[in-house]
């Protein structure tokens, strides 16, 4: 294993992590914090913050940076929206991020389940702000429209990496299949993802957010181009973080990007007009989601 540079170090507060695990255990819910082995778990769980992973914990895509299980998912749990709404209440959250595995096996990609979850949360927590971190729904605009109509506060969809690396990092190889045996997983597509962001921007007043993971071997030029593409697509918020290999089957870290470089990309993003930028090794898509939302909606920019 490649030794970690000294900046790849987090706190692991045992008591607070156990408390949060205990709170979430009984609900049977999944969080991306646990499913993706997030290194920020100490900080977020201490603040009683978590990002819920809906539509099960098995994904039909095969992205090589991700530790979420791949394969044939179970049918969606119709009780899940209520369970999430209850957990949001129990945790006293005023800002909640809902994400999901990709469900290429469902006709609407799970958009209906997102809608049910959003409504259930609001029903029990009328004041809560909601951010969805959505999959690409196979570019199905009807599915995306369903989510837009819920007038969520932030629509996030991650571009993840630069176009050249899509084939190797988010490959077509599909270990998954439908219950009838045929492969159902699709390949992620850089331009599709940009188009989704653009579509939501042009058809709603919702804030648009996307994230880039560094450390796969992308060049500086490629990163600058990707940030520029996100700006052209209408992104209001971007998050840039370091890839950390979560588990054995995943791709190796090619580079630990220096923290100074993250500042440089943040400065660049701001210089081309992206107002809210989080860029540092431990930034993940939902990291400080509430803070960055509040800063941008108050009209002040994030330093």
């Amino acid at each position: 294993m490649k030794p970690f540079p000294q900046w790849i170090k987090r706190q692991l507060p045992i008591k607070e992590i156990n408390e949060m695990n205990e709170l979430l255990k009984d609900s049977g819910l999944h969080t991306v914090c646990i499913s993706a082995h997030c290194p920020n778990i100490g900080e977020c769980f201490k603040n009683k913050e978590a990002t819920f992973l809906i539509l099960g914990n098995i994904c039909t895509r095969n992205c090589l940076f991700c530790s979420v299980k791949k394969g044939v998912p179970n049918p969606p749990d119709s009780k899940e929206p209520e369970k999430i709404a209850d957990a949001v209440k129990k945790l006293g959250l005023d800002y909640v991020v809902i994400t999901s595995v990709t469900r290429d096996d469902l006709a609407d990609g799970g958009a209906g389940h997102f809608v049910n979850t959003i409504r259930a949360i609001r029903n029990k927590n009328p004041k809560v702000r909601i951010e969805t971190l959505a999959p690409d729904f196979n570019n199905n605009l009807n599915a995306i429209n369903k989510i837009i109509l819920e007038k969520i506060d932030v629509f996030a969809h991650n571009i993840e990496t630069v176009p050249r690396l899509y084939e190797s990092i988010r490959p077509r190889a599909m270990p998954c299949g439908s219950p009838h045996g045929e492969a159902v997983g699709r390949q992620a597509d850089y331009n599709n993802s940009l188009n989704i962001l653009k579509y939501v921007k042009n058809n709603s007043d919702i804030l648009i957010k996307s994230s880039i993971i560094l450390g796969f071997g992308e060049t500086e030029q490629e990163i600058l181009e990707t940030i520029t593409s996100l700006r052209s697509a209408g992104c209001d918020i971007i998050a840039i973080g370091q890839y950390l290999k979560p588990t054995k089957g995943c791709v190796e870290v090619r580079e630990f990007v220096n923290p100074d470089k993250f500042d440089y990309y943040a400065d660049f993003a701001k210089s081309i007009g992206i107002n809210a930028v989080l860029s540092a090794p431990f930034v993940r898509s939902s990291y400080k989601a509430r803070e960055i939302y509040e800063e941008i909606s108050n009209g002040s920019h994030v330093a």
Binding site: M1, F4, K9, L12, P13, I14, H37, P39, K245, P246
Partner: peptide
């Protein structure tokens, strides 16, 4: 104590 997982290194604060 400092501990290392596959993903990162962590400082464990005394509870």
């Amino acid at each position: 104590v400092e501990m290392v997982t596959d993903k990162a290194s962590f400082n464990v604060p005394s509870p």
